[in-house]
Amino acid sequence: MDIMDIIVLVLLFSGLFFLTGGAVGILRFPDFYSRLHPAGKLDTLGSLLAMTAFALFNLHHFSLGALLTSLKILLIVVFIFLASPTATHGIVDAGVRAGLAPWTKGQKRR
């Protein structure tokens, strides 16, 4: 149990924490727009932290091949970081253009 393992575990569990929060949020929030909030933000951050943990764990036995694999995982992180918020924005934009009104306090869940 060296310092690297502890960092990996902390990153992995904080990633899992955010992913769980995202899943609970998608189930519990009242309408389309507010459900997209956890789906866009928490999933991005959660997978970002978890992927970084994978990349670090992969460097445990250090070699050039392992470094390349870690770099590829980090490239996936960059891709998710760019694509997921853009996709969420696109879905919200489509909802606004289709004329869906946001939920306000006191209304029923939909």
Partner: peptide, 15 residues
């Protein structure tokens, strides 16, 4: 025609 969204356009242009 609807104007393409700037954020989506730029994000896709990068990706």
């Amino acid at each position: 025609w609807t104007p393409p969204d700037l954020i989506i356009k730029t994000g896709c242009r990068i990706l």
